[in-house]
Amino acid sequence: MKALRRTLTTCATALLLGPLGLTALAGEATPMADNPVVEARLIAISEELRCLVCQNESLAGSRAELAEDLRREVRKLIQDGKSDTEIKDYLVARYGDFVLYRPPVKPTTWLLWFGPFALLAGAVAGLVAYLRRRASRVQPAHLSAADKASAEALLADTPPRPKDPA
């Protein structure tokens, strides 16, 4: 699937780059920002990445200077034909997993990924145990025959409910 998407992206890039290539031959430099395919990929990748200066912003949205430098770097890597994974690995090698908003699943992040589910499973197990224990502790009340008869007499005597005034 991913490979297919990449092929499609490459084809689209080739199609879009066709005319640009011609202008390049004509000796005109095209500013990088004019290539919509590269820009779209840049935005898609950098939205998954954290800006290290203002940590609650993505690399796509941050106006910090380092974010600008890193976007320039990512743009260059895209133009060098690097895949999304390679670009992310490039940044992780320099800044650590912290740059990824979606941390990878590995032994040190197991607690992060599976902790909430473990907590939920623990809570459900605790609840089941508690309910079972309570059920075994509460004894059903036994009615004597006389009590039952009087209860039924009372029920039979109850006049029909008055209609709701509303």
């Binding site: 290290l52 380092l66 430098d69 320099r94 650590g96």
Partner: peptide, 12 residues
């Protein structure tokens, strides 16, 4: 241009 900084993971 800060290129060395990027390779060293400088962010501040």
């Amino acid at each position: 241009d800060g290129r060395v900084g990027i390779d060293y993971g400088v962010y501040g």
